[in-house]
Structures are given as structure tokens and as C-alpha cells.
Write a protein that binds this DNA or RNA. Structure first.
Length: 503
RNA sequence: GGUCCCGUAGCUCAGCUGGAUAGAGCACCUGCCUUCUAAGCAGGCGGUCGUUGGUUCGAAUCCAACCGGGAUCGCCA
């Protein structure tokens, strides 16, 4: 797994949470691409150079070990191509006829023929991958309700395509089944090969149909897949529409941009990727380093400290990836990704911790018990800014849910917290003599701390209505968080390209 | 070449359903910890919003063309 996958899973998971917050039921599913030539490449390389290595025997995470042999394969492949080219062969031909590639193709044929030995190796190595994934998911705090495996779903869709052929939606040419999308400004596309086998599109047609059969109330199906597949989904959605499925208009491709490195593009094949586990480790270490430097944690056990650093590190990473508009490609800056200051996740956590500490102390002194008197209370500018931002929260949440864009919510959280810090620095809370003001400030603090978790827009709204005589009437009216956009259930689908990923 | 996406401070990004002096963070400079956590706060430096036209009382925001970057156009996934 690499950085690109992290953007994928964090995005998908975040959107699922946002939709839930907005009142939708969400089913999170994942498609694991567990078959195909890329798996076979790893298998071949492992057979040749693996010397029986297992994750346990070398102490390497399963998915990483399999990924290592994917890189090994590519190395050997390139070497062979070079040798053949030196022998006077054309590059194209050399690439087609590299012995190791032929072996992988043979392996794929055997897999499809259910060769017991190949299948056994395949299961074993896939098992390694899944163990590795599970470990990373657990650490990253993401989960799925269901996994789909392409080894099982790739058969789907054939009957649907043939049905479409009978209905005249598709046509036959050279023995293959095609769809003609030229009227819609797209191209013609093969849906079933001449030999009757499926292509990538076929199974996506099948799985989409299957999902709506399995979940009849489904109102939306969201595919979280990188923008290199924009065209694919455009075609897929159009095909399903042509097949006459009324839900075809509810399909949505949550397309996100690639993550680039300062050194250029990441390529799994060449091993030039930022490894997800290593990155997590690094940012957690950074949290530890900084934490120990500041030494604010005396009285914490080692286990508590570890848990804290883990939380901080992951927050840094998640926020780093989620604060950017999903559809934009982003540049990965290694230093900025582990930064804990400024516009970061830990900044927000820090403010949260500050408030909790404040509230704890207030509780001990029972300072929060005062009567909230907002009607005749002149808000200070610092308080007003915070309140105003809190009040916007429902609108921002609604917007994030509608646009399926966590970045707007992430940026809003930052604005709130930033405004709160200004307030906190400038205005005393506990030292305030007036019980009503003190209670208000504590309640304001509590609302800020609550904001990332619950809705506090209503609270802010109530305060503001009490304060309307102080020029706060100009706020935009709240739009209701309605379900009309989504209805009952939403399936969020992340396409995960096995452990090897796409280059 | 067709289609789609992107172009805002040195760097990374907000703002883009049109509205007042274009905002943050990082970096750099100056202040602030005997007072609720300084992972913080206040201030400074820094931008002809890719270019040129158009629509409009008004454009970073809408439209067109162009320039620059990227993706995609397989009986691959």
C-alpha cells in the first residue's frame, strides 16, 4: 500500500462518516483486485527467487513481501528485454516475448483453468496481502462492511451484456460485443471479447447491478476511484443508463487526483512509492519526538503516551491528505506531511485538549454552573467570530455531504479552532468575575470542542438569536440537512487494486 | 489530435452558486510564557488571481480563445 491508497481509503472513509453525520445510512464496500496478470507476476517472481520466504520467516508484512516480488518481476523483465534488444530484437517484440512474462501469462492461464497448485500459491500469497491490509486498516482506523473479490465478481456482467445485445443496446462486431457511445461524444467499447471472456467493464456492469439487487433501497452508489479512471466511469454509467436501469443516474464517481512526489510520479512497479506503513510510522515518530521535547506528559504511562502519539501522528497524516480538494492532484511534501504545527490535524487536537483541560478545571471549581445570559450580553469580537463560525457548521456539513468533499469540512474545523485560539489567548474564561459571562465562555469552549463530533450549529444559532440585536442578524439562514439527495442508503465503494496497486 | 481536470504569495493550499482593502499554513523577520496547555497568540514581509478578449454597475469567481501542467482515448485493469 502506498500514499495514493491512503488518499483513497481516507477519502472514502471520511465521506462515509460525513454522510452518516448528515443522516444517511452508509454501507462501505471494497473491491479487491485479487486476480489477473499482476498477481501472477508476483507469484512467478516469488517462485523463482523467493526461496520459500514467508512473511513470518523474514519478518516482513505480507502485502509488502508480495509487493517486493512484484518489483523483482519488473527488474528481471526489464533485464530480459534489454538482453533481447541487444540481440537485435525490436523493443516491442522483446517486451512481448520476455520469458518471464510468458511464464506469468502461463500462470494466469493455469489460474483460470483452476490448476490446483497455482490456485494454492495464489491463495497463500493473497492471504499474505490481506493480513497486511488488515494491519494497516486497523492502524489507520478504517474499516469496511463488505469486501468484494474480483476473482469472484469477474464472472458477473456477462449475462447482462448478452441481454443488452438481444435488446439491441449493444452490437456484435468481429465476434465481440460492443457498445457504441459515439452519439454521446464517447467512443466504441468492447464489452465481451471474441472468445467470450469479460473485460474490466463487464464485471463493473455486473457488480453495479448486483449491488442494487442486494440493496433494493439503495439511493446512491459512490465509487471512490482515482481520476485516471474518469473515462471508465463515464462509460460505465452511460451503459447502465442505456440498459434502462432507473438508478443509473444515482451512480457517482468520487474522483480524486493523484498524489505526486517532489521527485515525480509514484510507480508500484518500480518501487518508487511512499510506503503507507512507513509513512505512518514516520509521522507517529515525529509526534513522539515533538512530544518528548515539549515534555508535557509527565504522569502518563508509556502505553498512554504511545496511544497519544499514535492519535496525533495519524491525525497529522489524515488531515494532510483530506484538507485538499479531492479532485485536485496534490504534491506530497514529506516535511509538511509530518508537520504538527499550523494548518494541521494536531493543531486541532491541541485546541481540543486545551478546551478539555479548561472544562475539567471549571468542573472541579464548578464554574460552569452559572446561568447563560446571552440576550443582554455584548459579545466581544473574539467571541463573535467563533460563534459565527460554529453557526455555519450545519451548512458546511451539508455542503460536504452534498459535494462529497471532506476538505470543506476540514478547512472549516481549522477556521473554528483558529478563531478559538485567538479568543482563548485574549480573553480570560475562568478568571472572569461575571458568572453569566464565564458560563457563556465555557459553553462556547465546549461547543468548539464538540464541533468535530456533534452538531453544535443549533446551539450557536440559539445564542445568536439571543444576540441578534448586536448586529448578528445578517447570517445566512440555515439550510436543513435534508435527505432528499440521498434517501435511505448509500453504498460507498472503494476500488482497491490489490497489494500491488496500479503504477 | 479528441475528451476531461488543473493553473491564486518563494512553497503547499483556501476562496470560485459574481459584490467592498484576495485569505491561511510553511519559510523569513519582530514581539508575547510569575495568569486557563507557547503543538499557541499578535504583528511584519510577500500576489498585475496563467495570458488575452467578452458578459456585467461590478470578475480570482461566468463565457471564449490561447499558453503551461496532468489524465485518458486497449478484445489492460
Amino acid at each position: 500500500m502506498h500514499l495514493g491508497h491512503l488518499r483513497n481509503i481516507f477519502l472514502g472513509h471520511s465521506v462515509s462518516r460525513i454522510l452518516q453525520s448528515a443522516g444517511h445510512e452508509v454501507i462501505k464496500v471494497q473491491v479487491i483486485n485479487d486476480r489477473g496478470i499482476h498477481i501472477c507476476k508476483s507469484m512467478v517472481a516469488w517462485q523463482k527467487y523467493g526461496k520459500g520466504e514467508t512473511p513470518a520467516s523474514v519478518g516482513v508484512k505480507g502485502d509488502k513481501l508480495v509487493g517486493k516480488y512484484y518489483v523483482e518481476f519488473d527488474k528481471e523483465f526489464k533485464k530480459q528485454v534489454q538482453e533481447q534488444e541487444a540481440g537485435g530484437k525490436a523493443k516491442e517484440l522483446a517486451e512481448k516475448e520476455a520469458p518471464i512474462l510468458l511464464e506469468a501469462q502461463e500462470m494466469l492461464r493455469k489460474w483460470e483453468a483452476n490448476d490446483p497448485e497455482v490456485r494454492a500459491l495464489w491463495s497463500t500469497m493473497n492471504g499474505w496481502c490481506y493480513e497486511g491490509f488488515d494491519a494497516t486498516y486497523a492502524r489507520a482506523g478504517v474499516d469496511f462492511d463488505k469486501n468484494y473479490y474480483e476473482s469472484q465478481t469477474y464472472i458477473l456482467g456477462k449475462a447482462d451484456v448478452l441481454g443488452g445485445l438481444r435488446k439491441g443496446v449493444f452490437y456484435e462486431k468481429d465476434g465481440a460485443v460492443w457498445v457504441d457511445n459515439t452519439k454521446e461524444g464517447l467512443d466504441e467499447k468492447v464489452l465481451l471479447r471474441r472468445d467470450g471472456t469479460s473485460v474490466y467493464m463487464t464485471q463493473d456492469i455486473g457488480t453495479a447491478i448486483k449491488r442494487f439487487e442486494e440493496h433494493p433501497g439503495l439511493s446512491k452508489l459512490i465509487y471512490t476511484v482515482g481520476n485516471e479512471q474518469d473515462y471508465h466511469f463515464k462509460v460505465l454509467f452511460l451503459i447502465l443508463k442505456k440498459l434502462g436501469f432507473p438508478w443509473a443516474s444515482e451512480l457517482f464517481h468520487l474522483s480524486y487526483g493523484m498524489v505526486d512526489l517532489p521527485s515525480g510520479k509514484m510507480k508500484s512497479r518500480e518501487g518508487t512509492v511512499v510506503d503507507a506503513d512507513e509513512l505512518i510510522e514516520e509521522v507517529v515518530s515525529e509526534a513522539r519526538r515533538t512530544g518528548e521535547e515539549l515534555s508535557k506528559l509527565e504522569g502518563f504511562s508509556e502505553a498512554e503516551k504511545d496511544a497519544l502519539y499514535e492519535m496525533i501522528g495519524l491525525a497529522a497524516l489524515k488531515y494532510f491528505l483530506l484538507k485538499v480538494d479531492p479532485k485536485k492532484r496534490m504534491l506530497f511534501d514529506p516535511a509538511a506531511s509530518i508537520d504538527l504545527q499550523g494548518h494541521t490535524g494536531p493543531f486541532i487536537q491541541y485546541t481540543h485538549a486545551r478546551i478539555k483541560s479548561l472544562l475539567r478545571k471549571a468542573g472541579e471549581l464548578s464554574h460552569g454552573a452559572g446561568q447563560l445570559t446571552t440576550d443582554n450580553y455584548h459579545l466581544l469580537p473574539e467571541e463573535r467570530v467563533v460563534l459565527k463560525l460554529l453557526h455555519q457548521y450545519p451548512v458546511v456539513l451539508h455542503e460536504a455531504a452534498t459535494k462529497l468533499d471532506p476538505s470543506s469540512l476540514a478547512n472549516h474545523a481549522y477556521e473554528v479552532v483558529k478563531a478559538y485560539n485567538s479568543f482563548y489567548q485574549a480573553i480570560p474564561v475562568m478568571k472572569e468575575e461575571d458568572a453569566g459571562k464565564r458560563a457563556f465562555r465555557l459553553a462556547l469552549s465546549a461547543a468548539v470542542a464538540r464541533q468535530p463530533r456533534r452538531r453544535c450549529g443549533a446551539w450557536a444559532s440559539k445564542c445568536l438569536s439571543g444576540c441578534s440585536s448586536y448586529g448578528l442578524r445578517a447570517f445566512a439562514p440555515l439550510r436543513p440537512i435534508s435527505d432528499q439527495n440521498f434517501g435511505q442508503g448509500t453504498i460507498l465503494c472503494l476500488r482497491f487494486l490489490a497489494c500491488l496497486g496500479h503504477s
